[in-house]
Design a protein around this nucleic acid. Structure first.
Length: 561
RNA sequence: UGGGGUGUAGCCAAGCGGUAAGGCACGGGGUUUUGAUCCCCGCAUGCGCAGGUUCGAAUCCUGCCACCCCAGCCA
């Protein structure tokens, strides 16, 4: 596995920049990064990329990394989200150096704003939002200066103090940087620094009624924390001149460097907090942690191991290309982690009854089953075998297709960890549907066969009398479109069959005591986890994390096509 | 159309003037009591296009083309 920290992990341009900065001592000693989410929703895979980058880089260079909540817009934010975010970062395997909130700096930021005013670099404007927009100009035309731009420092200072004191209503006044209304970079056309919001803040309560904007907050918070490398996504690239302008104009304690990289897009999924929020609010999924959601909490609930996410983030690379990663890359990381760590069990998802006619009635014996094919230290368990079994319905074909190696009339197969059986007859119900197979077994075939005969197929099974019955949920992609975000209405592209609940699954008895969160491979089927929310003691509910690769399914699909 | 970015295989991605790494996907073969895993092998005379510089260019120069981002008192 390529962990981002591994010495042989592929390098990328940000790592190169940092190496060079260290060599030239450009950003001072040490590396300090930060992950700065806004607590306005749950984290998703895209954030996992940013988390692995920021925390991973810090780890790699023996540096530090803060978790900082960018909580400057009280109307959007909630304490529920800050708790969820902390949980997600921890689950991914990272520990922050300091836990901060941008709101911790509100007083200091306010003083910085005052300094700007004192230096003639900011002014209070009383234009309305619409007027400001009209004054801003367009992409090709310069903006116009507001009359308020000429205000004296004294008046600006007084007005700004009164903004803070709550003398104005929302939207009545705003603090703006005095830069250049004719700049070809629209972000430099006197950007708003502070706005009035009489709202209760999740961290500071009612202490403030003015709140700083993103650009102002981000660069100064980075500087306050001594961040050396401020990593963010591409859309902030043309905000960098403003980020740097603030550092130039104010007596900041450090000089962070902003570097942008492209955000993660994953095939068949959505990585937008806003859109994910809509899915939750409109009830299209069971919540933020629905196992079909590309949120970190959804993936955790589904059973993805955190090391799989880290491995994935290490594989996709860090560049400025707008990339859309195939979903298979993620699944590959998940399978690789689980193949290594998950114990194997036998479970029949779609049961078909089998009676072994030459097996003594009422007899039970224990078959020894290895818990893992290449990790002997994980030991083995006993699986009961008896006269009546269940096998997977799709492991039997009355008229076998070409290259079908499983059970069929007259065919012999291996029952995993047990005997060879041969299908001798079929039993049908009144509709003509096959409801039972009659088979014979070879008592000599337990560890091998005395005559050395080989069989092409091995199938899984469970003893009917001993089996537990459980619900198993199969998940398919949430969207049918490869790029739902690009569709006119992504909600229309939801996969109506993304969730399938199987209620008649038969499990080997050992699975009955599986603890919530445990992950197993159901042999020949896939990896499954015990749902942490819906399972009860003695009544586990299983989530399919990911299927096994299935070259038979692929080949037979190709045959049909 | 002003500004800022990006173009290397189906999808990612190395490459930093010396003759196209690696991963995913895909195809073929071997091992196998999971059609899994594992192991081999194949997969760009080609790097957005066109010129130019050079003994030599994905890398340097010039000109084009395509795509993405920016006109919130969101982040």
């Amino acid at each position: 596995m390529t962990d981002p920290q591994a010495p042989d992990a592929p390098s990328h341009f940000i790592r190169e920049i940092i190496r060079s900065d260290i060599q030239t001592n450009k950003q001072g000693a040490g590396v300090y990064t930060r992950f700065p989410p806004e607590p306005n929703g749950y984290l998703h895979v895209g954030h996992a990329k940013a988390i692995c980058l920021n925390f991973g880089i810090a780890q790699e260079f023996g540096g530090r990394c803060n978790l900082r909540f960018d909580d400057t817009n009280p109307e959007q934010e909630d304490a529920e989200y800050v708790e969820a975010i902390k949980r997600d970062v921890h689950w991914l395997g990272y520990e922050w150096t300091e836990l901060r909130h941008a709101s911790d700096y509100f007083e200091q930021l306010y003083q910085y704003a005052v300094t700007l005013i004192e230096n003639g670099k900011a002014y209070v404007d009383d234009l309305s939002a619409e007027e400001i927009r009209a004054h801003r100009g367009t992409l090709t035309q310069p903006g116009r200066e507001s009359a308020a731009r000429q205000r004296s420092r004294e008046e600006n200072l007084d007005l700004f103090a009164r903004m803070r004191a709550g003398e104005f209503r929302d939207g009545e006044k705003v603090l703006r940087a005095k830069i250049d209304m004719a700049s070809p970079n629209i972000n430099l056309r006197d950007p708003v620094l502070y706005r009035i919001k009489h709202a209760t803040h999740q961290n500071t309560g009612d202490a403030w009624c003015i709140y700083p904007m993103y650009d102002f907050t981000m660069s100064l918070s980075d500087a306050i924390e001594g961040v050396t490398h401020s990593l963010c996504t591409l859309e902030f690239e043309d905000h960098r001149p403003l980020y740097d302008w603030l550092l130039d104009e104010l007596p900041v304690p450090s000089r962070p460097r902003q570097i942008e990289f492209s955000r993660l897009n994953l095939g068949y999924t959505i990585t937008s907090k806003r859109k994910l929020n809509q899915l939750v609010q409109e009830g299209h999924t069971g919540g933020w942690d629905d196992p079909r959601m590309p949120t970190i909490s959804g993936m955790r609930r589904r059973g993805y191991p955190p090391e799989a996410l880290r491995d994935f983030c290490g594989r996709i690379g860090i560049t400025k290309n707008e990339a859309q990663i195939d979903f298979e890359v993620l699944e590959n990381s998940v399978r690789e982690a689980l193949n290594q760590s998950a114990e194997r069990r036998l479970a029949v998802l779609d049961p078909l009854r089998v009676v072994i006619e030459n097996y003594p009635e009422g007899q039970t014996e224990q078959c020894t089953a290895a818990n893992h094919p290449f990790r002997e230290e994980l030991g083995s368990r006993q699986v009961p075998f008896s006269r009546v079994l269940y096998i997977e319905r799709e492991d039997f074909m009355e008229t076998p297709a070409k290259k079908f190696f499983r059970l069929a009339p007259g065919r012999e197969v291996r029952l995993r960890f047990a005997y060879y059986i041969t299908c001798t007859d079929t039993v049908r119900d009144e509709h003509g549907e096959i409801v039972e197979l009659r088979c014979s077994y070879d008592p000599q075939s337990l560890g091998g066969t005395p005559d050395g005969r080989k069989v092409k197929g091995t199938i899984h099974w469970v003893s009917a009398e001993h089996a537990a019955t459980a619900n198993v949920r199969l998940f398919d992609r949430l969207f049918l479109s490869a790029n739902p975000a690009a569709e006119q209405d992504y909600v229309e592209h939801l996969n109506p069959e993304s969730l399938q609940v199987l209620r008649e699954c038969r499990l080997e008895p050992a699975l009955l005591d599986a603890p919530p969160g445990a992950r197993y491979q159901f042999e020949r089927q896939g990896y499954f986890s015990v749902d942490t929310a819906d399972s009860a003691p003695g009544a586990p509910v299983f989530n399919r994390i990911v299927t096994l690769r299935d070259s038979w399914a692929k080949a037979s699909a190709r045959q049909r096509a």
